[in-house]
Computed example of a mutant assay.
Amino acid sequence: MRKRFNSYTVPPWVKELRVTAVQFIIPITIFQGIRTLLFPTGFDVLLLAALIFLALAFHMGWL
């Protein structure tokens, strides 16, 4: 049986890492979006998609 995730048992450094990631994910995503518009490559598009997914996941509370 899978162990349920409890946010209160997470170490403090993981909580701090999550707070820092939430603060930086939107500016990095905007920068990557502009860069993808100017110099579109396959890697840039995949990176932008991953960053958008991470931003949505943090916003919706999935991570």
Rank of each mutant, 00 (worst) to 15 (best):
H59R: 05
L63V: 03
P12N: 09
V14Q: 14
L56F: 11
L46D: 02
I52M: 14
Y8R: 12
Y8S: 09
M1K: 14
T29R: 05
V10S: 04
L51S: 08
P12F: 05
I26G: 06
M1I: 11
A50T: 13
F31L: 15
A55M: 09
F43N: 10
L47M: 08
M60S: 07
T29E: 05
P40F: 00
E16Q: 10
P40H: 00
M60H: 05
F58G: 09
K3L: 12
I26E: 15
V19F: 10
A55L: 12
F5N: 09
I34W: 06
Q23A: 09
V14E: 13
P27G: 00
H59D: 07
V10Q: 07
L63F: 05
V14D: 14
K3I: 11
H59N: 01
T36W: 02
P11L: 02
A50E: 07
L56A: 12
K15I: 12
L38N: 03
F39V: 15
I34T: 10
F39W: 13
S7P: 15
F53V: 04
Y8Q: 15
P12T: 03
A49N: 05
A57H: 04
P27A: 00
R2L: 14
N6A: 00
F5Q: 14
L63S: 07
P12K: 07
T41N: 13
V45A: 06
A49W: 05
G42V: 00
L48Y: 01
S7G: 06
L38W: 09
T9A: 14
A55R: 10
F39L: 06
A55G: 04
V22Y: 11
V22S: 12
I30C: 00
F58V: 00
I26M: 10
Q23S: 04
T29I: 08
F24H: 03
I34L: 15
F31T: 11
M1W: 11
F53Q: 05
P27N: 02
H59E: 11
M60E: 06
I25A: 06
I28A: 15
